[in-house]
Amino acid sequence: MPEQVEVWSAAATLPPGLDATALAALLAEDERARLAGFRFDADATAYLLAHALRRLVLARRLGCTPAELVFRTGPRGAVALDHPQAQGLQASLSRSRAGVAVALADAAVGVDLEAVEASRADFELLAPWLRWEAGPPTRGPAEFFRHWTALEAFWKAMGVGLAQDNPPLRCETAGEDILLRFATGEDALAGRARQLDAGPGAALAVATRGAAPPRVVHHRIADARGWQRLQRAPAGAADLPP
């Protein structure tokens, strides 16, 4: 389990003054091909920002250029970084029309960001995967997406993603965290998820395995200047954009 998790997030819209062409130039050929295939501009923008953000924060951490980074996709869709200096560094990515997010840690980590939409807030959708220690929480869109993002982020941290055959989890709230245990088997914590502020209309959770709570550092990119400072940041820089 990691001692510290870094989370970077931003709105999924291109802020005035940010050069989309320069961001697209950071991507690999297969990423640019995928970018060109989106039907809707909103989805293309979210994809561009999420994948550029992942390359920028990883390059800064590893002391390389964004173009040097190579990602491998596993049999169940998990993406791993192929870089000689990674040394166990893990990255998780999430995107939606509400925002984009990347989480970095020196152990398994997962992140999920969703738009909070009342029309999708159906607690029956959670029933196959979640059991509540003290009964279901107060129902409402915000609480639904708090649990949905926690669930998605946890299974990303497990390296498999959310799927129909995932075993159910027991969950309880502890302050700003949701604690997760497997519904069958030992009582030890399987992991925990923490909700972070992703702005109005969005829900953002970061999850780690095990019981120990990591220190979570959240960097929220608010405008084009934040993106530009990240693009210009020297490798290994200690100063971070706000």
Rank of each mutant, 00 (worst) to 15 (best):
M1D: 07
P2S: 08
E3H: 13
V5T: 00
E6L: 10
V7E: 00
V7Q: 02
V7D: 02
W8P: 02
W8E: 09
A10G: 02
T13F: 13
L14G: 07
L14V: 07
P16H: 14
G17Q: 09
L18K: 03
A20C: 10
A22Q: 10
A22M: 07
A24L: 11
A25H: 06
A28N: 12
E31K: 14
L35I: 04
A36C: 02
A36E: 13
A36W: 11
R39P: 02
D41A: 15
A42N: 13
D43Y: 10
T45W: 09
T45E: 11
A46P: 10
A46Y: 04
H51W: 03
L53T: 00
R54Q: 13
R54F: 08
L56Q: 07
V57M: 00
V57W: 02
R61K: 09
R61S: 13
L62M: 05
L62C: 10
T65H: 14
A67F: 10
E68C: 07
E68G: 03
L69E: 03
T73C: 12
G74H: 06
V79Y: 00
L81T: 02
D82Y: 12
H83S: 04
H83Y: 06
H83A: 00
H83E: 01
P84Q: 03
A86T: 03
Q87G: 15
L89S: 06
Q90G: 08
S94M: 05
R95A: 07
A98G: 12
G99A: 10
V100S: 00
V102A: 01
A103P: 04
A105I: 07
A108V: 12
V109E: 06
G110F: 04
D112H: 06
L113I: 15
V116I: 15
A121W: 14
D122N: 12
F123L: 12
L125I: 14
A127K: 11
A127L: 11
A127C: 05
L130D: 01
L130M: 06
P136Q: 12
R139A: 14
G140K: 07
P141L: 06
P141M: 05
E143A: 14
E143V: 13
F144R: 13
F144Q: 09
F145T: 07
F145L: 01
T149F: 03
L151C: 10
E152S: 05
W155G: 02
A157E: 04
G159P: 01
L162T: 08
Q164Y: 14
D165Y: 06
N166Q: 15
P167E: 08
P167H: 00
P168L: 09
L169M: 15
R170L: 13
R170M: 15
R170N: 11
T173V: 12
G175D: 03
E176H: 06
L179M: 10
F182A: 14
G185E: 09
E186F: 04
L189S: 02
A190D: 09
R192Q: 05
A193N: 10
L196R: 04
D197Q: 09
G201H: 08
G201P: 05
G201F: 00
L204S: 01
A205F: 02
A205P: 02
A205K: 01
R209P: 10
A211V: 12
A212G: 11
P214Q: 03
R215V: 15
V217R: 11
H218L: 04
D223H: 09
A224G: 11
G226E: 06
G226L: 01
G226R: 04
W227T: 03
L230W: 08
Q231I: 08
Q231S: 10
R232L: 14
A233S: 08
G236L: 03
A238G: 14
L240R: 15
L240C: 07
P242T: 13
